[in-house]
Each structure stands twice: as C-alpha cells, then as structure tokens.
Design a protein around this nucleic acid. Structure first.
Lengths: 297, 297
DNA sequence: CAATTGGATAGACTAAGCCTATGCATCTTC
DNA sequence: GAAGATGCATAGGCTTAGTCTATCCAATTG
C-alpha cells in the first residue's frame, strides 16, 4: 500500500487550518505551487478529493475532514515518538512543565521540589497552579507534561498514577461543639455552616460529596478563594470546614484560632495523583516524579 | 521539529521484526546499505541509539523498543487513513470481512444477507463464524472489519453499536413440569438439569449468569456443541435449556419434541451488537451494516 | 585459517520535492 | 464593465535525498 508522506499530511492539515493553499504554504515555509502539487498527489493516491477549491479559498470535503483528523493524530504521535526517543537519550533532564491544583501546590511542592532537585539536578521544573479542568486541558494541548491532581478523575486520553491518600480533618472555631463531641462523622455536618472554596475547586466538590451535602443549599453560600482564607473565616466564627491533612501539615492552620479533629473511621479524604497525557513522551518521567512525590507524602 | 519519514519508521519496524539489517532490507525491498543509512539517519536525528549492532544480527535498545512500538501505531494509523479515504470515495463497496458468533450467525445472517445485498450490491461480504474472543482478535489484527457479537463486551480498542435485544426462552421436553407452571423465573432453573453449550460460547456464560448458576456445578456437565444439538438433547429428556429467540425464530426448535416458554418479566436475554476496531477505516460501514441488521432483527 | 555472515562505507545515478515564472479563473472596486 | 486583486493550477528547471552497485571490515564458524 502506498503511504502518504508525513510532509504531505502536514500540508493537508495546514490547508485545513488556514482555509487556503497560499496561507497554508506560507505556514509550511514552502511555495504555493509546491503545496498544491503535494495535495494533488495525495488526492491522486487516495483516489478521493479531499479539498474543495473555491473561489475564495479552500475547504474540506467530508473525506478531507476525516483524513485531516487522522492526520493530526498521526503527526502528533510522530512528534511524540521523536521527543520520547530524545528523552530516552537524556532522561529527566531539560524542561518539565508540571501543573498542580491550588489545594495541593502550596503545601506539597515545597517539600517535593527539594527532593526532586536532588534526585535529578538536570531537570528544569516549570510549575503552573490551576484548577483541574484547565490542567488537563494543558496536558492535552501539550502545554503541560504532568499535573498533580485529586483522584479519581477519568478523562479520555489521560493516565494517572496514585500517590497516596490525603485525609480531611474537621476545622472549627476554638470551643466549637463538634470538637468536644466524642466521635464525629462526616454526616454530622449537615446542620452546620460548612464553609467551602469557591466554585471550580475540586476540593469543594469533594467536601460536598463526603458530607452528602447538596451542591446548592439554601442561604447565602460563603466561599473562600484559598485554604488560608478559609481558615481565617473559620477562626472568625463563620462556620466549620474541612482541611486536607496535606495543608495542615504544611501549617495552614497553625497560629489561627481554630481546632482540628479527625473524623471517625472510615477515614474521609481524597487521593492525590499525578496525571499525564496518554502516549506522552514524558510519561515515564511523570511516573518517576510521581514516585518522588509519593515518598514526600 | 524534524520528523522521521514513514519509510524510515517502516525500516525500523522491519529491523525489529527480523532482527537483522539484511533480512529487514529484503523485506522492505531495498538493499541493505539503503536501510543501514536510513536507520543511521533516524538515530542521528533522534540523538539516541535505537538498535544494538551485534555480531549475529541486530537487537533493539530500550529506546528502540519504545520507538518501534510508537512507530507501529503510527504506521497502522496511516494505513487506516489511506483506506478510510479510499473507502470514502467508494463507500460500501469492495470486500468486507464480517465475523459473527456461532449462536448468531446461522440464525441472523440468512435474513440479513439478502437485505444487505439489495442495499449495497457492490459489497462483497466475507463471513467468518467464531467465538467472541477470536473475532475480537480478528478485528485487532485486521483480519476482520466488523463482528456481530453479544453485548456488553468491553475491550480496549473495540467500539460497538447496539442492535437490539434477543430474548432467552425456556426450552424443555414436551410435558415438562416447568412448562405448565404459571410463570417461570430464571432462578427456577437452579434445581433443574440445565444443558449448556460447550465452554467458550458466550451464550453459555450468559445462561449461567442470568440463572445465577455457578459456573462449575456438581455432577457431570452435559454440554452441546451447537444450538440444534442442544435442542435434540432437550428433546431427548436430558434436561432443559435456554434458547435465544433469534434461533427460535429461525426454526431451530421446530419439529423437535420440545416446548418453549418465555420467562416472566423482567425479560432475560442478551443484546446483539456489532463491533469494530477503534479507528478502523470501515467503522462507518460497520455502522451502516449494523443498521441493516438491526432492521432485520 | 579460510569461509561465511552481517553491517558499514564509497561513489554514482535518478527521481522526488522544491523553486520561479506564468496562466487562468473568480471576485472586488470604482 | 474594465482594471486590479486574490487564489489555485501549470510548466520547466534545479537540488538533494534516497537508492543502487561494489567493496570493505569485523566477528563467528567449521
């Protein structure tokens, strides 16, 4: 079977992107006739018209749409092959773009980075703090190599590695009833004012779900933008809340006028994990970084 | 980024396959120096040694293994692109290799094939009857384009389309107690001698599961190799069994000295579906064929 | 030690890919 | 509606990358 050239596939995608032979040619750093000939050749080999030549540019036929979609994954897979191989030659070196959600990053990374630097001095780590959704977008569009998020999180084309549990503790104003209570369960919070992070933080959703709270409750919802803020609000008597042990260990509650208390078994909490794009050339590095983070947990 | 040529990737895979430059070259219809140069060039671009030159041939380095794996999917995706595009030019024509499990094929296909031929006279249908596992293997290694199987069946890299339900009816010797009983439930069979197909047929597993029977029961297991045989065994008084309505409608029980009876609601049965390899160039055709089969059901 | 196997190297040839220049439609503008 | 602008196709020449044949070298085998 006669295969098209990757170059030709690039040309095809470029035409799809720019809607014009000339623009596409420019983007590919070739002249328009070159590109025209290449497209014509693909069409010849495939026996199908892929591109509709119109007066005002070019558009894809149905077959073209399908072909472009396949071509894009082929090209990106090939790019992955290249960087994976390059990486294999010099593992854990060069730039690595790691994302982390805001309820993990400030508490976990300080400890981790030191260990990471020690283990892999040639690794240049670029950090990005953002909410889960956007981190996963980053993985998919290749602006991130890996991301620390809370599991489980199913997403197509994303693989994850489990790094351990992160228990939730009750945080309440000093002297609050719940603290003196013998044993508290997550469901005891139904009648409390539970303070939460603002919408979009996965910790908010976790807290809601472990307490079996409806996502929309009556009354004015009081939300915080970060965990330190949340602690202050609890200290101020606005209500109680949950804090991940990770944040507590990092000292987020120290000095504030609050008390902490673990829940009765079964433990409630979240799982921390590292995620990467399926087939990412740096998947193995993501796992090695994950291993180091796990030890730091 | 400098991409390798698909040709070069083919060469690389060939070396991996044949464990020797010369053999690989022969397989690719080029001379050995050509292939040597090509491999050397890839290695140069990637900056990694992919192949270990040994006295007695060639073997892959670790990086090479990874690269070959990626290269294989790239190449097969490209081949898919080509055939998908070709197909788009002449949809539903040419050879199409359809598989079906033995408890579907003889009963569903006779009706279907006529409709199929009428709708797509240029389609040359090649049929293969086999058990689910092997059909799915066939899809994966590209010796089949689609397969009619019982759902649900999750397998990586396989997509399916639901074609409708196929109810199971009780089949018992004429005058059997269960037939005169007012309403029978699948669990009523626990104390009966339930005859089954031999191991490997998914219908056997379905029957076991809907009746909540353990897969290994005491006593000599009596198994049949096909549904007609099964009917004869039931007629012979060896026990009762389940028959899919599909087979009954096709006359598998007609003439035999048996009686049939539907189960009480909820209906028990299986779902028929058509499966194809994810990304198969003929996925859309598989769905169109599925549509015709569904109407025949 | 000669023969065999298997990969590397050298140099020549060809065709594929790219370029410039130009042609031919269609759409825009005054 | 004529002139210009836009956009793809065609023609012909150039360069280079991929291929070949011929030969060499190293390791294994008998």
């Amino acid at each position: 079977m006669h295969l098209p050239t990757l170059r030709q596939l690039e040309f095809l995608c470029a035409v799809a992107d720019h809607g014009s032979f000339s623009k596409a040619a420019e983007a590919c750093f070739v002249t328009q006739p070159t590109l025209s000939a290449a497209i014509k050749e693909i069409e010849g080999h495939l026996g199908v018209q892929l591109i509709e030549r119109e007066a005002r540019g070019a558009s894809l036929t149905q077959a073209g749409e399908a072909a472009v979609e396949r071509a894009r994954t082929i090209l990106s897979d090939t790019a992955d092959l290249v960087s994976a191989a390059r990486q294999a030659g010099a593992p854990l070196t060069g730039p690595f773009r790691l994302g982390a959600i805001p309820t993990i990053a400030p508490f976990l990374l300080p400890r981790t980075l030191k260990a990471l630097r020690k283990a892999h001095p040639n690794l240049k780590l670029y950090l990005r703090e953002d909410q889960t959704e956007r981190l996963l977008d980053g993985l998919k569009n290749r602006t991130l190599d890996a991301a620390l998020i809370a599991l489980p999180w199913e997403a197509n084309g994303i693989e994850t590695m489990d790094l351990g549990d992160d228990e939730f503790l009750l945080v309440a104003p000093t002297g609050h009833d719940l603290i003196s209570q013998h044993a508290i369960r997550s469901t005891d919070l139904v009648d409390e004012d539970v303070l939460l992070l603002e919408d979009g933080h996965c910790l908010r959703d976790h807290a809601l779900s472990v307490c079996r709270l409806p996502s929309k409750r009556g009354g004015a919802d009081v939300t915080a933008t970060s965990l330190p803020t949340l602690v202050h609000m609890v200290a101020g008597g606005l209500g109680v809340s949950l804090l991940p042990k990770l944040a507590i260990d990092a000292g987020v509650a120290s000095g504030a006028d609050v008390e902490l208390k673990p829940f009765e078994t079964p433990m409630i909490g979240r799982r921390i994990g590292i995620a990467w794009r399926t087939g990412s050339p740096r998947a193995s590095e993501a796992q090695m970084i994950g291993e180091i983070v796990r030890r730091a947990l």
